[in-house]
Amino acid sequence: MTITATGAATAGTRPPAERTTGGRGRGGGLLRWCFVAPAVLYMLAFFGYPLVRNILMSFQHYTPRTYFTGSSPFNGLGNWRAVFSDPLFTGSLWHTLVFTAGSLLGQFVIGLALAVFFSRRFRLSGFARAVLLLPWLVPMVVTSIVWRKLLDQDTGVINTVLTGLHLASGPVPWLSSPGVALLSAILVNVWIGIPFNMVILYGGLQEIPRDLHEAAALDGAGAWRTFRSVTLPMLRPVVTVVLVLGFMSTVKILDLILALTAGGPADATQTLGTVTYRLSFEQLDFGQGAVVGNVLIAVSAVFAVLYLRANRADFGRGK
């Protein structure tokens, strides 16, 4: 989920803890480390170990019998070659990028529009913003299952509405046509992501001093001009945060796809996440699963670096 990263994203840019209380006697060094050590050990076990282990696993040969025999011999680049020559992998890489780009674009544009709209003062504004969070708070598997019913070709309400209003000549095969299924998955994910984008961007909009808008208005700038020349530039740091956090949570998508299409039809919605799952936990080839997992990490890492850089630039300028 996206939110995990939210708080994390910028706290690191705060100044480090002061050293003044640290050094002096009372309690001693050992007791002080007792506060921190359990969490550090836990993170090493649940994040550090898997990272290292995945790299090792990607060079090992796992078979369905590995967990009985305990043998997983090293096999060099065998897994990497097998995965990279598999059209399922190359297809999933492409789907992942399309899915991520489409989702981010939709979530961001609609989220920003709603954030701007709800910045106006009117009755129900606060209430509506709160209620709109609901889609984001419901478990993703659950919303995906609900959408699976909504998008059902024969009994889904979306097709009932579309054909009823003569917007579609016949029932749209939302989830059953390989050409449409990825688009449907994007649609659902946009719906899920709108609240998160809206709330963060709304928060960013509130931080922009109102006199700036008034000054722009005095200078004769229209609403659109003010938005483009004043609001958007001021909002840039927040936009970076939203997009990068959105990227990191979208690129690893798994729940939504499994519950909505199970990767089908004809593997048209397989992503890096679902392929990792399929290789490791369905075919029990954990070595090849690890390869795809490593690719997923590499893609995330590239964006994380871009993010940290962009952020540093922003904060450097702000000071």
């Binding site: 994040f47 898997p50 997992g293 997923l296």
Partner: peptide
């Protein structure tokens, strides 16, 4: 701690399982 946000859950599960 910030870096852990980048580690996809499926990667954790992949290694954690064994």
């Amino acid at each position: 701690t910030l870096i852990t946000q980048m580690v996809p859950g499926i990667v954790v599960a992949n290694a954690l399982y064994s």
